[in-house]
Design a protein around this nucleic acid. Structure first.
Lengths: 203, 203
DNA sequence: AAAATGTTTTAAACTTTGTTTAAAACAATA
DNA sequence: TATTGTTTTAAACAAAGTTTAAAACATTTT
């Protein structure tokens, strides 16, 4: 029972590190076994398959990170503040977890069926409460009438996509890692402003 | 010399079709050989590797589609019109070419090094002329002073990301294919408006 | 036209994946 | 101590991309 957890954890840790370093597809089960210092077959013994190991790692990572995001969306913060906080926390989260971005890319690039099977990825999306709030405030007139889906897709796009094309951005602008971080930092102000401006009434 | 082009083309066509249908990773070279009705080894004879076949198909697809985009960016259209047209054409292009979206996803999800090697993907990004225009008009005061990189990343994000998370959007909103198309159609108005609003002077 | 050369195609093997298996080693229990 | 259950191992398997060496075909040279 002691060795048990130990081996499982060693596989989990080694895989996590390698997935981050070389990407999921370019990491072989033999690589993982080597790095973890365990027998090849143990990967299938503890996790049924490589795919399942990936899912496990991804889910744990998302769960750990998405709780804050959900909490913000479901809080009773004033709408504009909510958006500012959400963008801020989401961007920080992606900054701190390059693994998360690369995993989401790996998943999006997988078959359509598998995506919806993953309950984990869903918690990176919107919530009922937030949708309601957008509609309510639209009716009240405190914001423009806004399609919640459109708004949320705008948010997600502006937050996440820059990380997906990080290499392209760095390359095209000759950004150092620090300059890219500064670029992202600037977006924590820019993105909420843009979103909020787009829903201000009258105009 | 006749059979030559023929076989190469057969491989190219079969691969394109299968890549679109099942995704790059889930298509084996043997699948391609079967569909094309040729010997397994011919894939490596004409295209050095599966990876290289993929690059070839992707590049040809991008070249065919990116020309219009570049032309718009480099035209002497008035800035707001330019943005409207660019968004419009780009969204239509991605709508009409699901293969393109899935390919870009596949590439983004590949190793960092390979991305910048692909000159093709670069032509889906901004141009010198457009950058200059943003800076000039900022100085003139006809638009707010805007970081061209930030603006362009905003554009690209709002245009492309929704296609990347299409499955998620459809699933979460129970959209049919037609409803998703309508959702995208709406973005051809929404996205330019948002971008332009964010750069209008005074405010 | 025949021989020589170059190009295209083939069948078979090779390497590296993920995965399975059957036995061995170990631990816990009766 | 013998039995049972769990963990680990070495070896093999199937499917993938790739390479090879020879055969088939086409072209050029003499």
């Amino acid at each position: 029972m002691a060795k048990n957890r130990n081996t499982e954890q060693k596989i989990f840790d080694a895989a996590t590190e390698l997935f981050l370093e070389k990407g999921v597809d370019r990491t072989s089960v033999r690589d993982i076994a080597n790095k973890a210092g365990i027998n090849l077959a143990l990967m299938n013994y503890y996790f049924r398959s490589k795919e399942n190991l990936f899912d496990t790692i991804f889910s744990s990572l998302v769960k750990k990170n998405s709780e804050d995001l959900i909490r913000i969306l479901n809080s009773d913060l004033e709408l504009y503040d909510k958006i500012r906080q959400y963008v801020h926390v989401y961007i920080d989260m992606l900054s701190d977890n390059p693994l998360l971005v690369s995993f989401v890319m790996a998943i999006l690039h997988r078959s359509r069926e598998r995506i919806t099977e993953m309950k984990a990825i869903t918690s990176l999306y919107s919530t009922e409460a937030f949708t309601k709030q957008i509609i309510e405030e639209g009716k009240k007139g405190s914001i423009r009438r806004t399609d919640p889906t459109q708004l949320f897709v705008d948010m997600l796009s502006l937050i996440a996509f820059p990380f997906a094309i990080k290499t392209l951005i760095r390359d095209k602008n000759s950004f150092s890692e620090e300059e890219f971080q500064a670029f992202i930092e600037e977006r924590k102000r820019r993105v909420p402003k843009m979103l909020i401006d787009s829903m201000r009434p009258c105009s």
